[in-house]
Design a protein around this nucleic acid. Structure first.
Lengths: 217, 217
DNA sequence: TAAATTACCTACTGCGGAGTAACCTTACGC
DNA sequence: GCGTAAGGTTACTCCGCAGTAGGTAATTTA
């Protein structure tokens, strides 16, 4: 019946694999603009152009669905970074590439980024691929990068200090990415360059052993 | 009846102003550990040692209550920063004091911070004192700080670049604060110093007009 | 000390939305 | 060309939880 409506888009029966991706696409969009709890399964089903029971049949409960979204987008994000960071490059080049990869992903998948970042704490913790874990992994990657940079300068740094710097860097990147997500006209590479300037110059100073000292303490 | 139970804490009738603060304290704790939607009014009332209708009588709907929490904690946070940043200080000192104030707040009001930061996007936007606005205000304060710093060096910078740097800085601070919120043993001042090192050295380089250049582009 | 006010409770209602039962229909293997 | 699995739907149930109706007991005020 539906398929016979002349003007409208002909909704054909599609294989599961295709529908699943459409549902995930729809879910990411809806979660992105509503947040986990405000999003209703009806709206997601509607956005996907399918009825609700199909979503349950293919992707399971709402939690499952959300996790599937996070999983897919998180994997893509990590992939965008890891794919471009080659281990044998100098630290600044690694950082630069990592940032470009990161902002590139955000620019190209704003909804996915929004789900990962803004709806981060909605899902129960402890689940496979929860967001804290993803974030921690990224922080670790960055911390490792910094560690190698320090080492290549023949210096040493305490682990906590490296971790803290990594947190700062990741946080700064997230913050700019968040801004980027709301500014479609902005150029991701430009954002990457700005952050690179801000962070790398500071990091380089630290690598040289410089420290800022409070003048009043 | 309740008041006559011998062993337990005697729940007396308390004036509205006192109860309201207790309710807000309880709400902040519950919102902090559950998030907006997972938190139930029953649990909040319970945590406050009072019955649900009292919460409605004093603080209004769940949205109202959440907003009241954000309002109180947000005001406190902004106050912690603004109170210590004197306009006539040199930029690095201002930044240092601002960071100390900020991390001091986070260390002392972890629950409040968690509500402000992690549950940021739960409430509907457009409300008075929504969190985006608070954040924007802080970013503006920081951007202004940077602008004065640049000016004092006899240099100029484009507005967007300053704003971007401010975003990066605020994001970095938030990220570290987030870590701090989960590590009660950590010293807030220590975190402030670490971030100061990381960011100020970089900012100083930028102020001098240095730039990082990609070697491969 | 009676009246009015304030503090506080138990016990409900109503609804939005997650999840399901039961039932069609198109495709394709044989 | 027919049986059956896969794709799809409508129309429910059921429950958690926001919000309330309608009351009682302690305090203050006159």
């Amino acid at each position: 019946m539906l398929a016979s409506v002349p003007g409208g888009p002909t909704f054909k029966r599609l294989p599961r694999a295709v529908r699943e991706q459409q549902m995930l696409d729809a879910a990411v969009r809806v979660f992105s603009r509503r947040g986990f709890h405000e999003a209703s399964m009806d709206e997601i089903a509607d956005e996907a152009g399918i009825s609700k029971p199909m979503v349950y049949a293919y992707l399971g409960s709402k939690d499952d669905l959300f996790r599937a979204c996070v999983n897919r987008e998180g994997t893509r994000l990590l992939e965008s970074i890891v794919a471009v960071v080659a281990d044998d490059l100098p630290a600044d080049e690694q950082l630069w590439r990592g940032l470009r990869g990161f902002f590139g992903f955000v620019g190209a998948h704003r909804d996915g980024w929004t789900v990962l970042y803004r709806q981060a704490k909605s899902a129960r913790s402890g689940q496979p691929y929860d967001l804290a874990a993803l974030r921690t992994r990224i922080v670790e990657v960055v911390a490792g990068m910094l560690a190698r940079a320090v080492e290549s300068q023949g210096r040493t740094a305490r682990d906590e200090d490296l971790t803290a710097s990594a947190y700062a860097l990741v946080g700064a990147a997230e913050s700019i990415a968040d801004w980027l997500a709301d500014h479609p006209e902005a150029d991701p590479d430009h954002s990457a360059a700005r952050l690179m300037n801000f962070s790398w110059l500071g990091a380089r100073q630290l690598l040289r052993g410089e420290l800022w000292q409070p003048s009043s303490a």
